[in-house]
Amino acid sequence: MSSGIEIQHLSKQYEKKTILHDINLKFEPKTIYGLLGRNGAGKSTLLGLISDRIFPTQGRILFNAEMIHDNDQILGQFYLMSEVDLYPNRRRVRQLFRDTEQLYGEFNRKYADELVKKFGLDDSSQYGKLSTGYRTIVKLIIALCVPATYIFLDEPVLGLDANHRDIFYRELVETYTERPRTFVISTHLIEEIANLIEQVVVIKSGRVLVDDSSEALIAESYAITGPKNVVDSFVSGLNVIGSETLGNLKAAYVFGALDDRPIPDVITIEHMDLQKLFVNLTNEEETQNDAL
């Protein structure tokens, strides 16, 4: 028996356009995931499918070996905070907390009050009258206070200033340590979550490109710098995902093992960070323009 979410051969088409193609993924319990991909890669569609908001064209999604579709018990374990606003605009924030408590059966009201203070949110105002940033904050607070064990955060820092983002990351860690659960975070600001995520899923044009631990990913990604001709001959046969040149100096980005080839003295090998790896992996062209 597998625990967690298992996505099998999932495809989604809108009209005739394929948004997701044969996705196979697992989301384990109590793990922080980064769901990365460029705009339109299909991240939001995937999250919408997992939370049963839309229907797959093909394939299925299981949770602890049970189909998630129209299953209260499973859906009550999930919470998707999305860019789309599904809350009624005229409801006051405080009432929304109460509604959520009633519908989820539980809600950490004390923690919610704390967060309201920390973020400087006016919980007596109507949801629809809040700014984008504060609407995001309301959804974040709910996401952190519901009893769900799988929290999906689609662009969780949309419209938040640096200060509020910092509060959010701190609280995420805090609540995660107190009550470990799975967070799947989809964001453009990779640098800010790079050290938070244990597992990375990269989606490119509706397909899973990478699904691995961030430690393994970084260990397997190299930036090789040195004189152009030396670098070129060193990386021949390796999986080069991008490069930059400046005069005679070249940096080649390699994803995958380097095998045992001898390393010339004139080149330096470093690991790429997640952001750099992501940019190079999801770049549409095979290699970047030869200019810095």
Partner: peptide, 16 residues
Amino acid sequence: YPQFKMMIQNGVSRLT
């Protein structure tokens, strides 16, 4: 639809 939005956001199935 408006209530469906609220329901699915709160993990309530269509049947329920």
